[in-house]
């Protein structure tokens, strides 16, 4: 069928673009390595314990993997929340879900260091609890008998986000001053190289979240007609919404656990892709996974190169792009309310 062929085509082109981005990111960095040195390391001709090898294998490639995973997960979570609320401005950070996850992760960080597999699980579980709490609170504030009005939902998200941010400040003020710097750095939204085992845990949890959303893509299309119409077409709307909410919250929690609350990726990527592949979630959700990976990888590569040898937080960069993007969408598409 046409749709299946389109999906393959879209994913193949995006995968090609991702490969280009990965290669570019491998060659770029504040440690000035020549292309020849990078190639020598990649082909195994360089000294395995030399600086070049450590930079490539120990720093750049793990960071590339972490950035790609975080970007893909956030973009899919954004697409999930947008389908769930039928609100194109919904996104983990706008809905306050990221802040909820961040509070959970901060609490988990106080309980011990990060790094191992069990630490990764603990951070994600606490982050997930925070994300679900924030999501449920936002829903309860915004829900009316007739649905989720756009403005109320956004306001509820902002307010809940502010509340959780304040709660994070309270918790961090209890922290030992020596660890405070790390937590503040993480709160800005930073991708850093994390141990491969921990990364594998996050990737697997992320795949569960992705599957909960992508597996329901056809039903999500039907849900766009409204809940009653979806029920009348045979969609179990309650179960669908629960799965997509759990999936989106899990993806958000995963990313927040290792990269902090990086904002607006879930807004920018699905919107840009919708212009290319259209609104069909069977194309959009898989495309968001790869497109989000490209976006955050490029953003992170910029963040660690533009002010080298210093570094920008990638979360700062995405917010600098995302806030104007949000305003643009608000002004052009939703002027006068929806």
């Amino acid at each position: 069928m046409i749709e299946r062929r389109r999906l393959v085509l879209v994913l193949a082109s995006l995968a090609g673009a991702l490969a280009v981005a990965v290669v570019a990111a491998t060659f770029l960095g504040s440690a000035r390595l020549s292309p020849g040195e990078v190639l020598a390391v990649l082909t195994g001709r360089a000294d395995a314990s030399g600086t070049e090898s450590v930079v490539i294998w120990g720093v750049r490639l793990p960071r590339i993997a972490a950035a790609a995973l975080a970007g893909g997960a956030l973009a899919v979570a954004g697409a999930g929340f947008q389908a769930l609320t039928r609100n194109p401005l919904a996104e983990p950070s706008v809905l306050g879900v990221s802040s909820g996850a961040a509070l959970g992760v901060v609490v988990a960080q106080l309980m011990g260091p990060a790094g191992g597999v069990t630490d990764a699980l603990r951070l994600t579980v606490f982050g997930f609890a925070g994300a679900v709490t924030a999501g449920v609170v936002v829903y309860l504030i915004a829900a009316t008998g007739a649905g989720l009005p756009v403005q109320t939902l956004l306001l509820a998200g902002v307010i809940v986000g502010m509340f959780f941010a304040a709660a994070i400040t309270v918790v961090t003020s209890l922290v030992d001053i020596n660890r405070l710097g790390g937590i503040v750095h993480w709160l800005l939204g930073n991708v850093s190289a994390i141990p491969p085992r921990a990364l594998a845990v996050f990737a697997m949890l992320g795949m569960v979240g992705f599957w909960l959303i992508a597996g329901q893509a056809r039903q999500l299309n039907v849900l766009a007609l409204g809940e009653e119409a979806a029920l009348q077409l045979g969609v179990n709307a309650e179960r669908l919404k629960l799965r997509v909410f759990v999936g989106s919250a899990l993806l958000t929690a995963c990313v927040v656990a290792f990269a902090g609350p990086i904002g607006f990726v879930g807004l920018i990527v699905p919107h840009s892709l919708r212009m290319v592949v259209g609104p069909d979630h069977r194309l959009l959700v898989p495309a968001a996974l790869v497109g989000g990976a490209i976006f955050l990888l490029v953003a992170d590569t910029l963040a660690r190169n533009v002010v080298a040898p210093a570094e920008l937080s990638v979360g700062v960069l995405t917010s600098l792009c995302g806030a104007p993007f949000f305003i643009y969408l608000l002004r052009t598409r939703y002027r006068g309310g929806l």
Partner: peptide, 17 residues
């Protein structure tokens, strides 16, 4: 819903769900 970005054919196909 007023804002429904699907095409006519995509929408009619939803009836096959």
């Amino acid at each position: 819903p007023a804002a429904l970005p699907f095409t006519v054919e995509q929408l009619v196909l939803m009836g096959r769900y």
